[in-house]
Design a binder for these strands. Structure first.
Lengths: 248, 248
DNA sequence: CGGTCGGGTTGATCTGCATCAAGGTTTCTG
DNA sequence: CAGAAACCTTGATGCAGATCAACCCGACCG
């Protein structure tokens, strides 16, 4: 269905859902106005490739709504996801001509795009933007490094548990720790996309999810709806270092 | 031997070997002077752990000479290297209280340390520092993502070949492509450290190096000195996507 | 309503790398 | 110079996860 109807595109920055978390988070009214002049919105439907690795990039931007993934491929087709883009995440690299990764919409996606050259110029003159971008990039680097540990050293079961824990933690924050550690969420990815994220095959993903279900670590309703009865149990399965993730 | 004699510590920024590549690369004479007031040098001998994950950090800084590694561990001891720090690379994260990773000296290391709070203050007022740090962080993020592809999807042989290719490329730049694609360098890491970098066991590293030697992809003199007779051949073995690495 | 297609599960089998084990070489040290 | 301690290599064996294959289910469509 082509319902471009249900439109999540914000009208103005003030009512933008990512206003206070994206690159523009620290901008004041004046700066926002300047950004406004070089920005435009684009929507993409689920499954679309927004950007192909190697393509010329004439914009950078923020994910406003939806989920996208960053992927890299070997020429024989082996694929690795190297980033999962959620609302407020930044796409593109100022100063770079060509895209380094494929960007694929997992769900329908709305992006707030900035024309690249004007944006680069603004970065020179507006420290707030660069500062925020530095913060966000450092966070992504931390995430990438945690992912390296997962890819290099964790077992299939631990990988799946870690992935579920990440999703769960994100949702726990939103749903404000509902009733006694019970955590509920939907898997945003297909088994194949999960496999590409975790460095596994889709069969192994499927098997390990079944195993976690069999062992009562999670409950499944349908193929996507997950309930975690005991989050600490899940964290143990993830094999993570003790405390389970400080936020700065 | 405790030869603290052969001292690589620079006297002043002007004669500092990393002056034009480190965080301070874009600073002018005035800014450099301010940095000078909050900096001090420290030396560490090979094998020393400079920083333990979880420790309070009261400084950030740059590697001046030597090589260090960033590692993460699971509580059962499995270790993954998540970064390799070469001269000019930055250590620590402004705004963060506690170290997120272990930092271990691979060779003897000299660091140029900045007291953390004054440095953070300077970042607020001196855009040149933040700009350069952003650039460097983006580069590291790219490297981390390339590493994710390697960890998640490459075979042991491809991993070793990729690692050798990275070392070789770095040296090719320095030695200015000596005679017809012949590339020569020393391995800076033990087999165990390579294993931790590549997500393998040290036995597998050893075997794959032997195999590449047997197949004439490389020559070995002793255990560390490598000659690559045909660099393109090595790149093929690395399985990398065609062109083999654009620099921006 | 039957056909197809994307997504998911499960079984059987194979294999690349881990694991366990032994021995070699070099450097340091008493 | 003997002994220990790093570091490295090579062999034998086992197993986690890949591969190959069959089938299920729900959504969509003519």
């Amino acid at each position: 269905m082509l319902n471009e109807a249900q439109d999540l595109t914000p009208r103005e920055c003030e009512e933008c859902p990512i206003r206070h978390r994206a690159v523009c988070a620290r901008c004041d009214a004046h700066e926002l106005e300047k950004l406004d002049q070089i920005k435009y919105y684009r929507s993409f439907e689920a499954g679309r490739t927004l950007i192909w690795a190697g393509d010329r990039m004439d914009f950078v931007g923020s994910v406003v709504s939806g989920i996208a993934m960053l992927t890299q491929t070997l020429e024989d087709g082996r694929t690795q996801m190297v980033g999962l883009l959620l609302p407020s995440d930044f796409v593109g690299r100022p100063g770079r001509e060509k895209a380094a990764y494929n960007v694929v919409a997992v769900s329908d996606v709305v992006m707030c795009c900035f024309r690249k050259h004007p944006f680069e110029n603004m970065m020179e003159t507006t420290p707030h933007i660069g500062q925020r971008l530095l913060e966000m990039t450092l966070d992504e680097l931390d995430a990438a490094r945690e992912w390296m540990l997962l890819l290099g050293r964790k077992t299939a079961r631990e990988k799946i548990a870690s992935f579920l824990a990440i999703l769960g933690r994100r949702n726990a924050v939103l749903n404000m720790s509902e009733a006694a550690g019970q955590v509920v969420f939907d898997l945003p990815l297909t088994r194949e996309a999960m496999a590409d994220y975790l460095g596994l095959t889709l069969e192994t993903v499927s098997r390990q999810i079944s195993a976690l279900k069999r062992d009562q670590v999670i409950h499944l309703e349908g193929k996507r709806h997950v309930t975690v009865p005991d989050f600490d149990r899940l964290l143990e399965e993830a094999g993570d270092d003790s405390d389970g993730g400080m936020l700065a």
